[in-house]
């Protein structure tokens, strides 16, 4: 599968990445190369191998207990803007 320039622009937009025009063609080429490399895996016959999304262990679970909270100050510490205990961002209105 090869990635065209339109796809590069679209993916960049969805990921909120700003590209300069000169980057588009090289990225398309590089991404196509990466995909082609990964696609070599397709040569293997895995029809009787179940999909694996993790190794060994089963999903770890927690009990329904409140163990965290009261961290508003720490949570907000790195925010560019905060006020009255809220994060504040440039207005987004529907």
């Amino acid at each position: 599968m090869s990635v065209d320039e339109g796809t590069v622009r679209r993916v960049a937009k969805l990921a909120r990445l700003r590209l300069i025009e000169a980057e588009v063609a090289p990225l398309a080429r590089e991404l196509s190369g990466i995909l082609a490399w990964v696609e070599q895996l397709g040569e293997l016959d895995v029809s009787d191998v179940p999909p694996m999304t993790g190794v060994g262990a089963s999903l770890k679970r927690r009990a329904d207990q409140v163990t965290e909270g009261g961290l508003a100050e720490e949570v907000l510490r790195n925010a560019p803007h905060a006020e009255d205990g809220f994060f504040t961002v440039p207005k987004v209105v529907e």
């Binding site: 949570v75 803007h81 006020e83 009255d84 205990g85 809220f86 994060f87 504040t88 961002v89 440039p90 207005k91 987004v92 209105v93």
Partner: peptide, 15 residues
Amino acid sequence: KSIHDMHPRYSYVDL
């Protein structure tokens, strides 16, 4: 939750 009516230029976010 986003709150849009607390400031003229900012939206407030409560997580």
